[in-house]
């Protein structure tokens, strides 16, 4: 059923995700190439939490698409890296959110971040036709933990405060 309220909220999430994605890419200096906190993942996780796999995937894919249009990397290697990472992390997070009970938002987010990095690395290996990128795997696995922790923790704070905020109430109380 095409619930217009739902459509508006998903669109809002896509817009927020794209904005966070771009601001993060433009403003935050990267200590190590290819590593960033992935704050835009908050929005994907929120969509997964509130709606489900289909909507979460939609938000993630549209964010990557719009982000690449604005950033000018559409169909470049970086675009495919972001795409594969997003798909992998969304699938993993959806599975952990829906099928298991033992993880909080932080755990789901960490798993998503690690899956994102792994997915990116596999895509990089395929695009570059080079197995040597596997050298990055341990680094990316470890850096996924603080990145996932940060986004998961922020989302948890967001959900806690949703009772007192009217805008967020619209999100949370469907």
């Amino acid at each position: 059923m095409l619930d217009s309220r739902r459509v508006v909220y998903i669109s809002l999430m896509i817009a927020m995700g794209s904005a966070i994605h771009l601001i993060e890419g433009a403003l935050l200096p990267l200590p190590i190439p290819g590593i960033k906190p992935g704050l835009a993942n908050i929005v994907t996780l929120l969509a997964l939490y509130l709606y489900g796999l289909k909507e979460g995937m939609l938000v993630a894919l549209m964010r990557v698409l719009i982000g690449s249009f604005i950033g000018g990397i559409f169909l470049s290697p970086g675009f495919f890296l972001a795409l594969s990472g997003s798909i992998a992390s969304t699938l993993i997070m959806a599975f952990l959110l829906r099928q298991t009970k033992c993880f909080s938002m932080v755990g789901v987010s960490i798993a998503g971040a690690v899956a994102h990095n792994t997915g990116q690395l596999i895509a990089a290996a395929i695009i570059l036709e080079n197995r040597a990128v596997i050298f990055y795997l341990p680094i990316l696995l470890i850096t996924g933990i603080p990145a996932g922790f940060l986004t998961g923790y922020l989302l948890q704070c967001l959900l806690k405060r949703s009772d007192s905020s009217t805008i967020l109430n619209g999100f949370i109380r469907r």
Binding site: G107, I110, I142
Partner: peptide, 13 residues
């Protein structure tokens, strides 16, 4: 942070 989260972090490490 639930126990599962901690186990997950340890497993990833």
């Amino acid at each position: 942070m639930t126990l599962g989260d901690r186990l997950l972090i340890v497993a990833i490490l």
